[in-house]
Amino acid sequence: MNTKNFNLDSLVGNWESINLNPTVIIYCNRSNYLLSIIYMNEMNKQASPATYEIQEDEDGFFINYNLKRTAISHDTKLDILTISALGNYMRN
């Protein structure tokens, strides 16, 4: 399983949570990769995104989510994205 060394280009697209967490969209804006979490308001059915820059250090890729370092990994064989604070995602 390759979870640390992967190309962010391979993550671009829509990801649906296996654990019923909000949908995630990963995209490239110039040279930065961004991860948007799409929150759905159940009362008025409106979506509101929260966007985070994907960063990298010696431990791998991460975002700063709720003021905490949240790791991002990808199982290239199964094509499953894992966001440590939100769980596993499948490509939509």
Score class of each variant (00 low, 15 high):
N29G: 02
G13F: 03
T23K: 12
R30T: 13
S84T: 07
M1E: 10
N44R: 04
D75E: 13
A71W: 00
R30V: 12
Y39Q: 07
E42G: 11
R30N: 15
I38V: 13
G60E: 03
E58N: 09
I18T: 13
R69F: 03
N29C: 03
E16F: 08
L67M: 12
A71Q: 07
M40A: 09
N92E: 12
A71Y: 03
T23N: 14
T51A: 10
E56D: 07
G60A: 04
A85V: 06
T3I: 09
S36V: 03
D57Y: 06
L81K: 01
I37T: 06
N64W: 08
A85S: 15
L81W: 01
S36L: 02
H74R: 10
R30Y: 14
F61Q: 04
F61V: 04
N32K: 14
N32H: 14
T82G: 01
K4T: 12
N64C: 06
M43F: 13
L35K: 04
L20E: 15
K4S: 10
L81H: 00
Q55G: 05
E53M: 11
L11N: 02
R30K: 15
N41K: 08
I72Y: 00
E58I: 09
S17F: 05
N66K: 14
A50G: 07
M90G: 10
T51I: 10
K4Y: 07
M43I: 14
N66M: 14
I18D: 09
I38W: 05
L8Q: 04
N66G: 11
N21F: 09
K77G: 04
M40E: 14
Y89P: 13
E53W: 03
D9Q: 11
S17R: 09
D59S: 09
E53R: 12
D79M: 10
N64Y: 10
N14W: 06
L20W: 07
S10D: 14
T51P: 07
